[in-house]
């Protein structure tokens, strides 16, 4: 053990907590998959982009339809995604399976496209959307859900395993 302290291990830099790591994952996930969604919108795979929901529903200013609108909506998406990650963290973090993430993504899609649909005045009901849009957004949400969900669950499991290992180590050194 004396050897280790010489190497300055465990002395500086408290590692970031599991919760904040999860929230960072949420933010990055939101921005990254938002960019993918933007591409899908640009190439007409989907009729809706992040900004369709987050800006165009309320604002009609010129900039919202240009690149600035995309950037602002991506950041907003990141922030919302932090909340999404937090909800996953609270409810599902103990289920360490990639399928939980997939299901979470599908659930989110259902919420956004069915439950929340009325609050976005400029987005028509799901029945009015093209099939391309439906398929591409489902795929996108599934990947996004997997990204957020699986990352948090895995991290939780990994941290748990690491902690028990360290506990065992300290116990053996005490004995």
């Amino acid at each position: 053990m004396g050897d280790k302290s010489k190497l300055e291990q465990n002395q500086e830099e408290q590692p970031i907590s599991l919760l904040s790591r999860s929230l960072i994952t949420g933010f990055v996930g939101g921005v990254f998959w938002g960019i993918v969604g933007l591409f899908a919108y640009y190439f007409n795979f989907s009729e809706v982009a992040p900004k369709t929901y987050l800006l165009r529903s309320w604002l009609d200013a010129g900039w919202t339809d240009r690149w600035l609108g995309d950037v602002v909506s991506l950041i907003a998406l990141g922030v919302i995604s932090v909340i999404v990650a937090f909800i996953y963290y609270i409810i599902f973090k103990k289920i360490n399976s990639i399928w939980m993430g997939v299901a979470y993504g599908a659930l989110l899609w259902g919420i956004v496209f069915y439950v929340l649909q009325p609050i976005f005045p400029n987005v028509g009901p799901i029945t009015g959307m093209g099939e391309y849009t439906i398929v591409s957004t489902i795929c996108l949400f599934i990947l996004y859900g997997t990204f957020v969900g699986y990352s948090i669950s895995y991290d939780y499991e990994d941290t748990l395993a690491k902690n028990t290992q360290e506990d065992r180590k300290t116990q053996t050194t005490k004995a």
Binding site: R21, C139, L143, T146, Y150
Partner: peptide, 27 residues
Amino acid sequence: VTIYFLFLASLKSLKTPYLWPFLPFNA
């Protein structure tokens, strides 16, 4: 493409997720 990503993400070699650090994400 979706299945391809999910397939890669579900792989594990020696208990290590294949797409780490992208998925599971580690900033």
